[in-house]
């Protein structure tokens, strides 16, 4: 048995043979496997193709205008930037079979409240209502046309959009002040609120009209408008919708 090759002991050769057999087996099996099992880039291409072919459920905003005039009508109101499918839900199936598949037409108050119920975390300037207080149990669409969304009359109440400020102010010493006391609101603001903004007081004397120690009004607190707060405008320290001093 011992074929003392190059003086190596028989035991070493036996182990060597076992290892060689194993290595050859791995190489042979590895080589015999079809390339599609081993080729990473083929797997990648196949996955990309599979992902790209997944079914589409939301048709996209441009699709609706091809048949529906409302899609163009909508461009007047505040909802002009909304996709139809934001409210009506996924409509790809509808575009493929317009007769049999109809997208949802939400008429319940809850579906409008999804965006428009009051939530203090929402950015100010976004139209919000308290669903309990705001014409309860009446369908929103009986007053509002969602395709030309705007309040029935231009809001007298700033609170329609600035609900958080209104609620804060309502419990503050400034509760009785009208918004317009401090802010001038150009008419444009009601149409394009983010483009034309309401004004804010730009000089210290404005607050001083009530809070300067020399004024005759009763409103406390009184300060010396000339020295108090140095170069800052009043509202740069005090939040006027909820003055810290109570």
């Amino acid at each position: 048995m011992a074929n003392g090759l190059r003086g190596l002991p028989d035991s070493f050769l036996r182990v060597l043979v076992v290892f060689l057999v194993l290595i050859v087996a791995v190489i042979v099996i590895g080589g015999a496997l079809p390339t599609e099992f081993k080729d990473h880039s083929r797997h990648v291409q196949a996955t990309i193709a599979r992902e790209a072919a997944l079914p589409i459920r939301f048709a996209g905003s441009t699709e609706c205008g091809t048949c529906h005039d409302e899609a163009r009508l909508k461009q007047i109101g505040y909802h002009r930037n909304l996709s139809c499918e934001t409210c009506h839900g996924a409509a790809k199936a509808h575009t493929e079979n317009p007769v049999e598949v109809k997208p949802a037409a939400p008429r319940k108050r809850e579906s409008c409240a999804t965006c428009h119920h009051f939530d203090p975390s929402r950015p100010t300037g976004f139209a919000q209502i308290n669903p309990v207080m705001h014409f309860p149990r009446q369908a929103c669409i009986s007053c509002h046309d969602p395709h030309q969304a705007q309040p029935p009359s231009v809001p007298e109440e700033c609170s329609a959009c600035h609900a958080e400020i209104a609620r804060t102010k309502a419990v503050s010493p400034h509760a009785l002040l009208e918004c317009t006391e401090c802010h001038t609101v150009p008419a444009e603001h009601k149409v394009a609120p983010r483009i034309t903004r309401a004004s804010i007081p730009t000089e210290r004397g404005f607050c001083g009209k009530c809070h300067d120690k020399d004024t005759a009004t009763l409103q406390p607190p009184k300060i010396d408008i000339n020295t108090h707060g140095e170069k800052y405008l009043c509202w740069q320290c005090h939040y006027p919708h909820m003055p810290e001093v109570r």
Partner: peptide, 17 residues
Amino acid sequence: YHRVTKGMLPACVEVCP
């Protein structure tokens, strides 16, 4: 991926009001 490779917007972007 199946939308954006066809020039569409992702569903979340599409519906964001």
